[in-house]
Write a protein that binds this DNA or RNA. Structure first.
Lengths: 252, 252
DNA sequence: TCGATTTTGTTCTCACGTTCACAAGCTCCT
DNA sequence: AGGAGCTTGTGAACGTGAGAACAAAATCGA
C-alpha cells in the first residue's frame, strides 16, 4: 500500500527530518568546537579532529552529523565554516531569540550579567521580579521591571523563551503566567518539578541534584562498599536516624 | 566453571549493587519529593503518589527503587521517612561533603550565596580566585582566598568536590590543579570540555547549551518546516552567510 | 589512467533505558 | 478464617543510543 514504507524494525522512531534527542543535545557542543577551530584559523577538520575537540568519539560524531545531511567530503573532512553554519542553522541560532529572566536574586543577577548570555543568538529583553524593592534597579544596561508587565513584554518582543530563577515557592505560578502569556520554552533553575501543557518545552538545571550525583559516585570511591551499615528494617513505625533536611532546599 | 554466572543476555551491565546511571540521576529528585511529602505531614505514599510528585511515571519509579532494595510494602506503599533515609544514605548525603568553589565572578558569587547550597549534605569550605583584587572580599560568612592555597585547603578539609566557575580560558588549568590536589569530583560551569584522568568524575552545567536545545525545538514549532532555505552546498571554498560568533562564548 | 590512501556515511550488533503487565504479598473486611 | 482489593516488585517486550566495522567516494601520486 504505502509506496516506500521503509520502517525497518530497529530504526529509531523519528518524524521526517527529526533528529534524535541525544544528537540534538550534542549539536551545540560541536558548534562550540567548530567555533574554536575556526578561531584558530583551521579551515578543514576530520571527524577525528572534531570529535577530540568536542570530547566524543568519532563514530558518534559522524553519525550525528549524518542526520543533518552529507556535509563532509570523503578523504578530506569537513569544511569548518560551512559545517558551523549548517549546524547553527539547524539549531536555530542564526536567528535571534528573545529571552526574559524572571526572578532577579543572586542567580538571576549572575545570568543577567553573563556576557552576551554566553552565546549570541539569544537576546535578553527583560529582567522581571515581583519584589517592588528590586524593580528599577540597573543591571548592566538593563533595568529590572515589574513582573506584572510580563504579558505586554512577551507580546511586544515576541518572547518565546523564559528563564525562571525564582525560589521554588513561586516557580509554578511564574511558569503558568509565562505559558499563558505565550512563552513556549522554559529553562527552570528553581528546585521544583514544573508542569506545563503539551507544546511547551521545559528544561531544568539543578545544582543540588548535580552535586548529589557526584556524591553518589564519590561515596563508592573512597572506602569501597563502606556504606554506613544500618539495620535493614529498623523503624517502620519508629525512629529513623537523624537526617538534616536533605533535598528540601527551597532557597534560591 | 563460574558457579552462578547469571549474566542473562539482556541484563544491564552493572557491578554488584551498582545502580544504573539513569536511576542515580533520578534519586535526588525522589529525595526532594519525599522531603516535600514529609513536610506536608504525609507518612505513607504509594508509588503513584511519589511518581506524581517527582514528575515521572510510577513504573519507572518502582523499578528505580527496586535497585535499592525492597523498601515498600505491597498493598500499602512506602513509608516516607524510612524511604527518604534509605535514598539519602544510598546517595551519600547522610554525611557531609566538603566543597570548594573556584572562580568568584558573577556565577561564583551566586553559588556562594546560594543558601545552604540549596541542599544540606554539602559544605562550602572555601571560595578561591586567582585575582588579587577579589581575595579578601567577604561573601556571606566567608572570605575569598587565594587560589594558591588550594592544595593546603584540600588536604586540611578533605575536600573531594570542586566547582569550577571560572571563564573558559583558565578552566582546564584549574581543573588540573584540583585533580592533582586530590579532588576527585568536579562540577564544571565553564563552557569547555575538560579532560580528567580515570577515577575523576566530572559533570557539566552549560547554560548556553540548554538554551540552544530549547531553540532547536522552538524553531520547529513556529513555522513548521520553516528552516531558512539555503542552497545545499553553496560555499565550500567561498562565502558563508554571516554568522555572529555563535557558540564561542568564553565569558563567565 | 589507475591504484593507493584517506576519510566519510551507513549498516549491523549490542547495551541501555522505558514501559507494560502481572504474579506475589500485604491489609482489611466479612 | 477466607476472600476481596490494593500496591509492590519484576519479567519481558520494545525503543533508543553507542560503537565497531566496512563500503563508497574523493584526492593524490606515479
Amino acid at each position: 500500500m504505502t509506496p516506500a514504507r521503509s520502517r525497518r524494525p530497529g530504526a529509531p522512531t523519528r518524524t521526517e527530518r527529526g533528529i534524535p534527542e541525544a544528537t540534538v543535545a550534542r549539536l551545540p557542543v560541536y558548534l562550540r568546537a567548530l567555533t574554536a577551530l575556526s578561531d584558530s584559523g583551521i579551515a578543514t577538520a576530520s571527524s577525528e579532529d572534531l570529535a577530540t575537540a568536542a570530547g566524543v568519539n568519532s563514530a558518534k560524531l559522524r553519525k550525528d552529523l549524518s542526520y543533518l545531511g552529507s556535509y563532509g567530503t570523503r578523504g578530506v573532512g569537513y569544511d569548518v565554516e560551512y559545517l558551523r553554519y549548517q549546524i547553527a542553522r539547524e539549531i536555530g541560532v542564526t536567528q535571534d531569540w528573545a529571552v526574559v529572566i524572571v526572578g532577579i536574586g543572586n542567580l538571576g543577577h549572575a545570568l543577567a550579567n553573563y556576557s552576551g548570555f554566553g552565546t549570541r543568538g539569544f537576546r535578553i529583553v527583560a529582567l522581571l521580579d515581583a519584589d517592588p524593592t528590586l524593580v528599577g534597579e540597573r543591571i548592566g544596561d538593563m533595568v529590572v521591571r515589574d513582573f506584572a508587565e510580563l504579558e505586554e513584554i512577551v507580546a511586544a518582543d515576541r518572547v518565546s523563551i523564559g528563564v525562571i530563577t525564582t525560589p521554588a515557592g513561586p516557580a509554578q505560578e511564574v511558569c503558568d503566567r509565562l505559558v499563558s502569556a505565550g512563552v513556549t520554552s522554559i529553562l527552570n533553575f528553581a528546585p521544583v518539578v514544573l508542569s506545563v501543557p503539551d507544546g511547551v518545552d521545559i528544561r531544568k538545571v539543578d545544582l543540588s541534584i548535580e552535586l548529589q550525583i557526584l556524591a553518589y559516585h564519590e561515596q563508592r570511591k573512597s572506602g569501597e562498599a563502606a556504606l554506613p551499615e544500618v539495620p535493614e528494617l529498623p523503624a517502620m513505625n519508629g525512629v529513623v536516624p537523624d537526617l538534616p533536611s536533605v533535598g528540601g532546599g527551597v532557597g534560591a
